[in-house]
Nucleic acid binder design. Structure first.
Lengths: 146, 146
DNA sequence: TGAGAAGTAACCATTGAAATTACAGCAGGT
DNA sequence: ACCTGCTGTAATTTCAATGGTTACTTCTCA
């Protein structure tokens, strides 16, 4: 099982907006062209990002702007805006284990803390990266191309 | 998106085998009763675990035994046995970004390392927990019940 | 007011998870 | 040698989520 491509698409969107914001008006069609998908898919993701106050999408005229300095938007912020994780739990349990079994009625108490710490390890690492890292990383890559 | 319940079910299975191995023959029906699911689901998971050499399932007579000391089976071992992650990559990309776009043709180079480190953070944390922790944890919980 | 763009509803196809039924194959007890 | 209980596994079904697509409404600016 994988985390849906919407997360990496969102990072792709931010990178595009950052790179092209001065040369082009960055619209959903423009982004769909770079990512090679459908504009409606992009709009749905843009909608999630703007509900999380990370970006502003101009109605009518079109175009995306980023609401905060790049260094103040982490991968985790993007992840949270995009992934509708149930209860915020990464790990899924089989519902309704048997309460008459000593193991069944205690399995949550046994596992919850440990699983949470695994999830936290991942999320904490996500907090270490920001869109500013994407900015500098992309600059380097583009220089190398020349 | 969540990691499938097969992982937590597998941990539940190990706990049951450990707790009940001396009192009962632990069969797929027995396990299905504790977890409250279908025996065939259990057998599929048992099949994955035995292919990974973590357990042995007795044909004919039935019953599950764990192949190694509990302290030598980590959550990560179980996770790897259970989750058929494509290429081992936790994060999914949208296929075929536009190679004519400077961002599109560099997005993988830009993100791959960072995403890998996030995945590694999770997997490393998984390696910190073993079935021995489940054994001691469950003992504590059962004592409290009395 | 018209053009371009976002918002969104309504579909559809595909995929994977989980459940279920059915049956063949195996091993131990009698 | 057979019966019983259990595993292995195929086939099917249901359900939800993802991703794609079309179509239409709404908005803003020139």
């Amino acid at each position: 099982m994988q985390i849906s491509s919407r997360f990496t698409v969102a990072l792709h969107i931010f990178t595009c907006v950052d790179v092209f914001k001065d040369q082009y008006k960055v619209t959903s069609d423009f982004l769909a062209g770079s990512i090679n998908t459908n504009p409606v898919i992009i709009r749905k993701i843009l909608s999630q990002l703007s509900k999380a106050n990370l970006i502003t999408v101009a109605r009518g005229t079109g175009g995306v702007t980023i609401n905060r300095p790049l260094s103040e938007i982490s991968f985790y912020d993007v992840y949270q805006a995009i992934e509708p994780v149930e209860n915020g739990d990464l790990f899924h349990f089989h519902e309704a284990p048997n309460p008459e079994c000593p193991v069944g009625r205690n399995i949550h108490k046994l596992l919850d803390g440990k699983l949470k710490s695994i999830q936290n390890a991942m999320e904490d690492e996500m907090k270490k990266y920001s869109l500013a890292d994407l900015h500098s990383g992309m600059e380097e890559l583009l220089e190398k191309e020349e």
